[in-house]
Every structure is written in C-alpha cells, then in structure tokens.
Amino acid sequence: MSLPHAHSRTARPMLGGEAHGHASLHDDCEGHGPIGHLDPRTRLVAAGLFALMVVSRDQIWPLVLAVGLALAAALLARLRVLPTLRRMLAMDGFMVAAVALLPFTVPGDPAFSAFGLTGSGEGLHQAALILLKANAVVLMLLALVGSMNTIALGHALARLGLPCKLVQLFLFTVRYLDLLHREYARLRTAMKARAFTMGTNRHTWQSVGYLFGMLMVRSLERSDRILAAMRLRGFDGHFPCLEEPSRFGRPDGLFALASAASVVLMMSQG
C-alpha cells in the first residue's frame, strides 16, 4: 500500500530539537485528498456513527469490512503510512496484555496451548473482535478527524453544539501546545547539557517535577500576559462564540450517502 502525497503532519514529535529543527505538533493539514474537501462537521459525525456501528457489531466479517472501510478512508485522506501504522500499534501496553490474556481467561473449547496453559477458541475470537474494533475506530478517527486542522476541528465542535467555553478552551489549548512543547524541549536540552539522564531514582523524578513546575509557572505568566492583552483589546469576560459559515456542499452530500451505504453494508453482513 502506498499513500501518495505525503502530507505535513509529523510523526511523534522529536524531543530535544531546537527552534529551527522543531517539528510542529499540529501543522495545518487540511485540504489534502478528497476527504480534505469535506465539511469538518460531516467528518466528525461520520466518525462518530462509524465508531458506534463498529462497537456494536460482534461478528468477524462486518468488522473486517469496517477495517477495510477505514483503510479506504485513510487512503482518501492521504495519511502517511508509517506514522499512521505507528499510531495504531501504539495501543497501551496493558491493553495488549488484556487482549493477549483473553484466550486464557474466556472459558470455551481448547484451541491451542502455550506456556502450559490452554487457550480457548472463544477467547481467540473475542481477542480478534477487540483488535478489529479498536483499530477500525482509531484508523477512521485519524483519517476523518486527525487529518483536519485542529482549529477547524474546534469550530466544527462549536457548530455541533459543544458549549462555547469548552470550545474556547480547546482553541486556547491548541494555541499553547507548540509554545509549551518548545519550552519543554529547550529546558530538557539545557538539563541534558548539564549531564542529566533519566534514571529510576528520586533525583530524576524530582528534577522532572521541577521542570514541569517551572513550565507551569512560565506558562501561567504567559497566560496572564495574554489575558492582559485581551483586556487591552476590550475583553470583558465574555467570549463571542465564533461562527463559521457552513461549507456543507455536494461532496458532503455524496460522502453522507456513501457513509450510509457502508453502514447498511456492514449491518447486512451480520
């Protein structure tokens, strides 16, 4: 599988880079591929319905189909292969354990044995279901929503009825992310220059605690300055909720139709 037109979203940010080489956490990545032309709300709602659909299915084939659909969406969104794979594999360690343990904890007909334990076919089946579900949802989420500019996502959330304050909080957070991450990287670099290495000891934990405490103090001061600047521009304690014109158009209609068709297809496989 090759996904052409590598878009600009970076992999997990490298820590310890400096200003020039710094990889941004959330570059603008809108407008790539057919998915990029859809209204953010359409994408959000579709992702939500898809997740609901997937989670409520309990047979292998509809779920395989769902993973296929998610892959198709990823192709259409022009996601880069390697970073996407890495994200999908980055399931938490203990979740991997939870799934890996299933064959041994679900009672049923013995299907295989390992380490002197007998695994059940039913357990294997359930583990497969969970892996398919989790990956289908994550892939679809990355394809439809992850490929969206985070600011656009904020506005879409507002238009879908999320409280204004929550959306403002979201937008402010997005704005601070890069600043925070850069400041974190600079401090970490300076610590490294003083021969600091991470270890399993109190000195490490305390030092990183100080690092985050300092990061917090500086960021809070920055937020004070931002608030002061906002006051200077007439902020009176109320955020106007941003209104963006709807971009719902023919592609969105088509996409909605296609989504509905896929859902029906998935249902009929059960």
Partner: peptide, 23 residues
C-alpha cells in the same frame, strides 16, 4: 472566562507530559 487561558495552559501541559517516558 478569565481563567480559560490558565486552564488551557494546564491542558496543554497534560498533553506534553504524555510524551515523557520515565525509565
């Protein structure tokens, strides 16, 4: 509303902290 920038800072910090791995 005045506290939104403050809370946003901490929210961002939470995000950055998830990138820190302790051995």
């Amino acid at each position: 509303p005045e506290r939104i920038p403050q809370v946003a800072v901490l929210s961002g910090l939470l995000f950055v902290a998830a990138l820190v791995h302790f051995p």
